[in-house]
Each structure stands twice: as C-alpha cells, then as structure tokens.
Design a protein around this nucleic acid. Structure first.
Lengths: 233, 233
DNA sequence: TCAAATATTATGTATATACATATGTAGCAC
DNA sequence: GTGCTACATATGTATATACATAATATTTGA
C-alpha cells in the first residue's frame, strides 16, 4: 500500500475518515500508530500527526500517549455553533436591519448580576434594552447589563443608535465568558416587545463576558418565536 | 525582547492572548508576521505558526496569506457546544439514569423525513419514541426515525432496553449531519410524557445524520422544562 | 490611464530529526 | 498476589529547511 501517495495532511485525513465511514476502522477500534500509517501513506509522521490531531480535535478520534489512537465511540459530541452577529444575520437573510433603543438607565441590577460586577458591594449598573428588527418586524430582544468600570457615561449615550454589541467588540477587551442556550415562555413584556403571544416558546441565548472573574457585560438575547440556530457537522 | 524565551506553542499562544487582552493588539489591528514574532519570542516560526493557527481556529485571529494576521473584530463568533450523551449527562449530575421505550413501529414517516430516506419514493420507516429519565423523572423525550436500510428488523427489537443512540454510534457509520437548536411550546403529547404543563417552553435539539445525501437517522430530543445547554469560551 | 504581467511577501505545509512526556507493561521484590 | 521500579512505546512537540500558495504591490505595456 506504500505506493498510494498522500501528499497533504488533508488527504491523509480524508483517507482516515473514509476508513472510519467504511467501517474498516470501527468505533472503539485502535488504528495503526503514526509511524506505520506514515509508511503506508508514504509521507512523514508529522503529516499523519497533523491529520489525526485534527480529527481528534473534532472528536472523531481518541488519542492517548503510549496507548494509541482509537475511533471515538461517541463521535458527535462536539458541535461548533456560530453565534450570530445580529445585524449580519438579518442582512444575510435578505432583510433590512433595524435597531431600536427601548430603555437605557443606570440602576441597581438583579443580585446575581450585580454580585459579579462590583468589587463585593452592589453598585448601580448600566442597563440597556433594545430591539433588533428585520424588515421592521421584531427579531431579537437584547437585554444587557454593562459594568460601568468598562463603559463611561458618555459612551453610554451612543447606544441610542448603535447596538451595544457592535460598540463592545471594538472597545472592550475580552477574556473568558460563557454562553447558555435555553427556552423560555414569553411573559407579558416579551410578548409586547416581540409582538408575539404570551406563553409562546422563545429561544434564548445568555452570554456573559468576563475579565478575570469580573463581569464586563451580561446579555440575554430573546429571539422571535420559531427562531432556530443551526450547525453542520 | 529576544531574551524572553517561549519554549512551547502554548506559551506563545498565551503571550499573544495576553497582548490581545491588554489591548496592545486591538481588534482589527495587524499583528507582526510569524518570522518577526519567532525572532522576538526566540523560537522557530513553526512554533509561532502553531499558536496563531490555533487561535485563528478559535476565531480570535483572522489570517490571510500575504495580507497577514489581525485580531478578530468579532471574537465571540464560535462556540463549541458539547452535545450531551444523555445517559452520561444524567450520571454526571449524580442522578440515576432510566430508559423507557414508549413506542416502536414501522410506519410511513412525515413527508420531509421520508423524502430523504427512500430513494425517491416514500417507504415505511422505523419509528421509535422513548424517554430518558433522571431519578425517575422525565429528562428528555427522544423521537427518532431510522432508515430501514441501516437498521434491520431484528436489530429493531433490541431497543426495548437499549437507547437507539447507544446502539447507533457503534453500529452505523456516519458522515455528515446537522444539528438545530430551537424552542417549542409543549403540546398535549409532550406535556403528558414529560410531566409538564401544556404550553411550557421546551428546549429542542434536532439532529440528522446522513451518509451521502441519504438520511440514516433523524432525531428530535425534547428536554424537560428549564433545561439549558452551556459552554465556556 | 488602466489593465495585464510580474515580483514580493506572509501564511501554509511537508520533511527529517531530535527529544519530551505520558502511560501501559513487564519484571522484580516482598 | 501486591506494590514498586524500570523499560518500552505512541503520541506530543520543537527545530531548520524547503517549497507551495494566495494575495498584494509593483512594474510594464498598450
């Protein structure tokens, strides 16, 4: 088999994938080691390494030093979701993007949000509620809390015509954060702002951005009924 | 700065991240090219390349040949979600996993599902409805359609005590697929099976697994009210 | 002036080599 | 058999070198 030549790590990856799909290598099976594969494919071990490491990253292979490489038994564990940049997502659908500021205030936040923003004690926090529309119809409701340490009062005023998200990405450093997907039932407020019925099921993304434990911003995006987020694996 | 030595691609990556966080390199900025960074860090270009490529994979850098590397303006575009392996997820929460087969039949599927399974014409398809429970309480409702080309009648019978998912991952090859997250309002059936109220908002994962255009299996997972799926970025 | 051809350049990748690191296995002592 | 140690081995990574590729920049030619 040494005659079959694989010149790139991509082609090696394809061949490995093909063998998994054809069940020549079944879930749970050990596959040959890198050195052997390199010889079989007629390429350097580094090339095989790149291919296998990439497949392992994607969750299709399990690799351990000394033990070897095996086909993952639960291959569909990871899914990379592309969190929408709202303006762009709406434009991509061929609709006209609109932005509407609904509320902008500096108030005492809910306990859990305040806790991670002040240095222990609760302080007033910038609060923005705005609506993104597609062809004039409500698309997503953005409810955001901003740590005043990161956003000054004068900056705050610009949100009358700029989405806080767009401003943030270019003005605030980022470190870690987390994202939560869930479903909620539309309350009175959501129903009114999103022009839907009370009790409608709404898809929600909660995102928190932190810089060393301290929350920079916390946002809830509540989408119109029927919204779905998709990915291909 | 050549004296500061970075021995591993991870340490290079950390340093690059630090510079992004500290806003030394701001979103949209070009960063020095690999060769220069390699010299500054006192390592090989390949090492820098590995670090930068990894950051680009994660969406923090934008790279283009000849043009160079710049800090991404919209860093939080990707989120890798770990699709739960139900049995495991329940166990991880310290609860006891339970499985209950609710329905198992061979019937004409809904139009869109049937279309991608038969070779053009609509055929009978295996249909399974089952419930996964945590400490006896409904956790997720699994509604699955299986292409009979991949699952024979005798295999079918095993689902009385084995989740189709567990069986599938070790017996069926996989190629591509897609995953959709959405929210639905509990209908009469869901309310009954998940022991919740009609109209409750439920988080839903729809997953389709294909082998070259042809659908192998299509599943809808409907979770108990309040379920959330989280990831850290 | 503008478009086509060409040069330049940053990233992308392949290679051989060397060594690091984790970890399974075997051998040993008790 | 149990537990410790030493060893073997597969993956992980760093390096220098070389060339590929894509895309910008520059020069050339009409």
């Amino acid at each position: 088999m040494t005659d079959t030549r694989f010149k790139s790590w991509q082609s090696v990856q394809e061949e490995v994938l093909a063998r998994i799909h054809s069940r020549k290598w079944k879930p749970g099976d050990f596959i040959p080691n890198e050195a052997d594969l390199a010889q079989e494919f007629g390429c350097a071990r580094a090339t095989v390494n790149r291919a296998l490491q990439n497949l392992a990253d994607e969750g299709l292979l399990d690799r351990r030093r000394k033990a070897g490489t095996r086909v993952a038994t639960h291959p569909v564990r990871k899914a990379t979701m592309y969190i929408p940049i709202i303006r762009q997502e709406i434009r991509d659908r061929g609709l006209e993007y609109g932005y509407e500021l609904i509320r902008s205030e500096k108030v005492m936040p809910p306990r859990e949000i305040g806790k991670s923003m002040g240095s222990g004690k609760r302080i007033d926090v910038l609060h923005i509620v705005c609506l993104h529309t597609a062809d004039g119809r409500p698309y997503v409701l953005e409810d955001r809390w901003l740590n005043p340490k990161w956003v000054s009062r004068e900056d705050f005023s610009i949100f009358s015509d700029t989405s806080p998200n767009e401003w943030l990405v270019t003005h605030v450093p980022f470190t870690e954060g987390n994202i939560v997907f869930s479903a909620i039932s539309a309350g009175k407020t959501e129903a009114e702002l999103l022009s839907c019925k009370e009790g409608d099921a709404l898809f929600v993304i909660d995102r928190t951005t932190r810089d060393k434990q301290e929350t920079i911003t916390s946002v809830r995006l509540t989408f119109f009924p029927g919204y779905r987020i998709e990915t291909t694996i």
